[in-house]
């Protein structure tokens, strides 16, 4: 017997393309899953734009963006967004000045100095920080850090219980793991040969780290920085709990401040009547927040893609 499977080997039917409709249906469903993410983005944009446009029909956009008086839910209402933008900026600066230097230091330590076994032990600890819910950070900021800030405040009047600094510092600790892990990714993407070349020239670890590794990973570190800013700008619960609820056109981090996110959340808890100008304010501020963070994310993702292309 000739050992050929099927019937006549010359039968093209045995190799003829099957339609496999079931398979196509499944692939179609999988495509829909992937496309859903696009739908979410579209949905977010669609949920923001119409109420925002309506809002600007009632409030002058120029007055909104340059006004220094923010009291949208009072009578008479004031719609100058700058105080809550300022609050966001102050808290973000506090957070970044903790997260970026210390996060970067942690990353350099882990990638350049720590032995593999030590790194394996320490990394999960840092990651643990990233997994703590923000509401717990808020609690920690208000009840633990704020008293310290009040007691140790060096100049002028001691801050109140609610202040931007405590919220910002704790937010910095919250964002630190993200900065550390993104920077470490960037550092470990630097080819080993580059470092070895520098060591061969007699450089110390310090010199290799600061003059070779960090400059080579700079674009990735910048990406981490931008993403950290975006995270700080978008964080809600810590500022809602610890920074206070009063819009404040001030640069003094010892004062109570309201950020854009805290305003949105506070207005959201208020059960505003749909269609009121106050309700639309949520969307106007939300649009501002979305545009700002989205631009930062796109920018930072661009950078990460670029350096990956260079080194991989």
């Amino acid at each position: 017997m000739l050992r050929i499977p099927g019937s006549s080997p010359n039968d093209p039917g045995i190799l003829r393309a099957r339609r496999r409709y079931g398979e196509r249906v499944v692939i179609g469903i999988l495509f829909c899953c992937a496309a859903l993410s696009v739908a979410v983005t579209v949905g977010i944009v669609l949920s923001l734009i119409p109420p925002t446009l309506e809002f600007f029909r009632e409030v002058d956009i120029f007055a909104f963006l340059t006004g220094t008086d923010w009291a949208p839910l009072f009578v008479p209402a004031k719609f100058g967004v700058l105080p809550i933008v300022m609050g966001t900026i102050v808290v973000t600066i506090c957070a970044i000045s903790v997260a970026v230097p210390f996060g970067l230091g942690t990353a350099i330590y882990l990638s350049e100095y720590a032995r593999p076994r030590v790194r394996k032990l320490l990394k999960p600890l840092i990651e643990l920080l990233a997994g703590i819910p923000t509401v717990i950070y808020g609690y920690f900021a208000l009840k633990f850090i704020s008293p310290f800030v009040q007691n140790l405040w060096p100049v002028g009047d001691s801050p109140g219980v609610f202040n931007a600094l405590s919220a910002g510092l704790v937010m910095g600790i919250m964002i630190l793991p993200m900065v550390a892990s993104l920077s470490e990714d960037a550092l470990s993407a630097v080819p080993h040969g580059l470092r070895e070349g520098a060591y061969a020239l007699g450089s110390s670890k310090f010199e290799v780290s600061t003059r070779v590794s960090v400059p080579a990973a700079l674009s990735g570190i910048v990406a981490a920085f931008v993403l950290a800013v975006s995270r700080a700008v978008g964080e809600t619960m810590i500022v809602l709990i610890a920074a206070g609820g009063t819009p404040n056109m001030s640069l003094n981090p010892g004062e109570a401040m309201q950020t854009m996110t805290a305003f949105i959340a506070a207005a959201g808890t208020g059960d505003l009547p749909q269609g009121s100008t106050g309700y639309k304010t949520i969307f106007a501020v939300g649009s501002l927040l979305f545009v700002a963070t989205f631009m930062m994310n796109v920018f930072s993702n661009r950078i990460v893609l670029k350096y990956r292309e260079v080194y991989e």
Partner: peptide, 20 residues
């Protein structure tokens, strides 16, 4: 040609080819 059949012909299913 596999037993006279062009494996790269338009009718041919690569999955069926690999089964044989």
């Amino acid at each position: 040609l596999y037993h006279g059949l062009d494996l790269y012909g338009p009718q041919i299913d690569p999955v069926e080819v690999r089964r044989r």
